[in-house]
Amino acid sequence: MKAILATAAGGTDVLQLRDIPKPELPSPHHLRVKLAAAGVNPVDTKLRAKPAYHPDKLPAILGCDGAGVVEAVGDQVTRFKVGDEVYFCNGGIGDEPGNYAEYTTLHEEYCAAKPANLSLQDSAALPLVLITAWEALVERANLQKEQTILIHAAAGGVGHVALQLAHHLGAHLVVTVGDDRKAGLVHGLHADKIINYKEQDFVKETLDCTEGKGVDVVFDTVGGETYLRSLNAARIGGKVVSLLATPLAGADVQLARLRNLGLGFELMLTPQVLNLHEERVRQRKILEEGAKLVEARQLGVLVTHRLPLEQAAEAHRLIEAGGMIGKIILTMD
């Protein structure tokens, strides 16, 4: 089969198209899936540049997100049969093969039936961002109806899914974007207050639209100075959930303490990194709930770039250039 291998740590040139054997089923509970597409995420570019989790297992197939058709099943598989269309977040961090390939294998418990009204290829764009947004908003922030949330980079991969999920939960939506095109996208996704962070002070704008109180929840997908300034945009006793590990200086800690903020972090890869079976099953159930929302037309995923598998390096370059809208997928046909 054809696969993209990260042959070493480094730039996009380390992503090489190779012919390798089709993977065998690792256990009686595994499926082999003929992939239709793989989602490309910022974490893929970071793991290419610095294989943080399994640096001793290169070359490796990257790509956590995938969707395809079940091609073979182990003799103890009960949840799926050959021919089923599935989507999942599995592999791609070095411990087991990812999805930049024509075939992959995964445990049946980590796999969900794809949304019936979403194409097989587009389904590959959804798993990581859906699980990330769900864990951040539902499990970390406990976002409630009528609460107000500030979502940074709301037109990005995670951001535009989080925006839709927050709307589904009944929250009031304050968002940041960087240009008019992105503003148009988030307006169509029911954002109540749109802030162009390049032209406006997002802290001031957030306080102005909340009568000086601040939002109940901040969802930070940017990190750095944006995260630190967001401590002033949350209400007293509010919550700030971030996808990034931004160092806090003493003054930042004191500010968060003074404002009684709940600071949370979201890394959806934790169950896979730490090999937590029950947590991975829980994440699969999030995919099942997400599929219901897609089928009810309350959630969608915007795919802005569809590249053939052999252009994985170009996909990484696009992400690293910044300013992405929606998602990128690699297609296998």
Rank of each mutant, 00 (worst) to 15 (best):
A112C: 10
L25A: 07
C89L: 03
G91H: 05
A112Q: 11
V138M: 11
E109I: 00
K81G: 15
Q144R: 15
A8R: 08
P26L: 09
K50H: 09
C64Q: 08
D122W: 13
E85R: 15
K145M: 08
A38H: 12
V86T: 10
N117S: 15
T132N: 14
N99T: 15
D56F: 09
L130K: 13
G74C: 00
V43C: 08
D65N: 14
A141I: 01
N117G: 12
E139K: 14
A101D: 05
G11M: 10
C111I: 15
K22F: 01
A37N: 13
L143G: 02
P28N: 03
K50Y: 04
C89F: 08
L31E: 12
A60I: 03
H29G: 06
A116M: 01
I93T: 06
I61M: 03
G98H: 03
P42F: 01
L31F: 04
K57Q: 09
V138I: 12
K22A: 05
Q144E: 03
V40C: 14
D56L: 04
N142A: 10
N99Q: 15
E135M: 02
V129G: 07
G92H: 02
Q121P: 14
K22Q: 12
Y103D: 00
L126P: 06
P21K: 06
S123D: 09
H107F: 01
I131Q: 15
G68C: 11
S123Q: 10
V14T: 14
I131G: 11
V138F: 14
Q76V: 00
D44Y: 00
G63Y: 01
P28S: 02
K57Y: 03
E24L: 09
W134Y: 15
L35I: 11
E146N: 15
P23I: 06
L47I: 13
V69M: 14
D19L: 01
L118I: 15
E96D: 00
G83E: 08
I151W: 15
L150K: 11
A9M: 09
A67K: 12
R18C: 12
A113H: 14
E24N: 12
Q147T: 03
G63P: 04
T148F: 03
Y110N: 04
A67Q: 13
A133L: 02
K46Q: 13
F88E: 06
